[in-house]
Amino acid sequence: MLGYIVAILYIISVIFAVCTGGTEQLSSSVFTSVKSAVDLVLTLCGVMTFWCGIINVLDKKGIVNRLSRLISPILKFLFPNAYKNGACGEISANISANILGIGNAATPLALAAMSRLQKLNGNKDVASDDMVMLAVLNTASLDIFPATLIALRQSAGSQSPYSIILPTVIASFLTVVFAITITKLFSLVF
């Protein structure tokens, strides 16, 4: 899947750069983005090492399980297979981190959830329904407090930096409902 996306982006970019005479820019952008990929992984390394350690502690002490019991009706509907096998711990932690806006904790938790779901997966090359649901849910942000954007608005001299909170919550909620509906429907077809 990713192979096709990269192929399309490469081909379009090269054709464009040749037509507009920006080939030099194109070549230099490759090296800067490769460097930024390494930076990103280094940042992720720190965050992931830290959070996966913390989560392992909380998990082994049964705290994650208690958390998932709180939202179990939702989990049962969204992730039926994981729920049946009692593998919802990381998923509920990921959802909580998203809602609370601890963005840098959400990715490690989601990856931990993915590896847990992969253990339950029959065919290791093909995504399971639960995996698709987790990924799509994470592409729709559940964040109820867009802190970075508010800070950005404040620094840009907005009269009411907080005015976006309620519309964002409403739009997020509707988007998530849409995402869940469409993923459930498509999982019947694909």
């Binding site: 899947m1 990713l2 779901l117 995504a127 698709v132 799509v136 608005r153 739009a171």
Partner: peptide, 29 residues
């Protein structure tokens, strides 16, 4: 702002999640 607050970097999320567990076919994701 509202769009930024209610969406996420889709391509990054999908590629990172699935490549971390070695999934090749992501179906309807």
């Amino acid at each position: 702002c509202v769009i930024m607050g209610s969406s996420d970097t889709m391509l990054y999320v999908i590629s990172v999640y699935f490549s971390s567990v070695g999934i090749k076919r992501t179906r309807h994701t």
